[in-house]
Design a protein around this nucleic acid. Structure first.
Lengths: 160, 160
DNA sequence: ACCATATAGACAACGACCTTGTCTATCTTA
DNA sequence: TAAGATAGACAAGGTCGTTGTCTATATGGT
């Protein structure tokens, strides 16, 4: 950081911290049988779990959960289906709904992600101290919205 | 956060912290005469200052600094020129180079950004304590690369 | 001084991902 | 039972990135 731009350091370090964790996560996931999984997908998996009804999640549900159009969500689902992470189903009570549920492959990715994040967290704790790391997360919770899931990150970053 | 996804909280909070700061920055910048400025642009301004030669920065320079192709950097520069943030110049020693420099309007945006970030930082300090905030940045410095400027964030997030 | 190589920039084609709009089928509700 | 809402399919278009190609200009070895 140049000295004349001191104020930029906080946001920059937050972004870099996120990137470091996500990059290392996906390097390790690639080694563990998930080479095609993208940073976006973990968020999408969680949105699919949250947004779904009794018989699964539709593209329209997912679009609402992610803050994108149903068409965009539909294309994301097509990609995930091609990668074997979701599988189509149907809602017996509503013939319009084409639902999707996560496959065991997706749950495997989520479980491995959880383990890898815990390992990375352990490395951070070794570097900065367990108490300081706990304080960091606790403090970030105080300054961020409690239940944010509409990330829509890619577009947001340089949207019109 | 659901309890079964505890490991996701650290990266998620880092991303949300970044988003909160950037969103509030740009809301305020919009009020202060920079309504068309995008999150990407602040990074680009800094890259233009860093990457440039004696007579300014070329699209090729900027592309290298940002980690994108010279064509993509050229389009970004066209946008910034249209918004009045950069102005073309030339290098008397090299007729190939079409250089660009930041305009006073861009420096105005950078100075206002600096001030707004300091205000936001002050709000965070009130919420979590000045010492804890300083500790957070210090700790993040220990776990992130010291001099990262190849953010290429939009593409990275859901690249192929 | 000369020629091979590298680089800047312009232009074109294309791909990924998002958007809006439209259409039909199906569900819900007054 | 009819009106309105919603799901999904399809098409067209925008933004932003990519690679490839071409010309003009520098640079460096001979």
């Amino acid at each position: 950081m140049s000295s004349e731009l001191r104020g930029f350091e906080l946001p920059l370090r937050l972004l870099l911290g996120f990137r470091v964790l996500i990059d290392e996560l996906h390097e390790e996931l690639a080694r563990q049988g998930h080479p095609r999984m993208r940073p976006m997908h973990g968020f999408v998996f969680q949105a699919i779990m949250r947004a779904g009804g009794r018989y699964g999640t539709t593209a329209a549900d997912l679009g609402r959960a992610l803050g994108v159009s149903k068409q965009a969500a539909g294309k994301t689902i097509d990609t995930l289906e091609g990668l074997g992470y979701v599988r189509p189903g149907h809602d017996p009570g509503d013939a319009r709904r084409k639902t999707y549920t996560l496959t065991p492959h997706a749950y495997d990715a989520l479980e491995r992600s959880e383990q890898i994040f815990e390992d990375l967290r352990g490395q951070w704790a070794e570097t900065i101290g367990e108490d300081r790391l706990r304080a960091m997360v606790e403090d970030l919770r105080k300054v961020t919205p409690p239940d944010a899931f509409q990330l829509d990150t890619p577009q947001w970053f340089n949207a019109p």
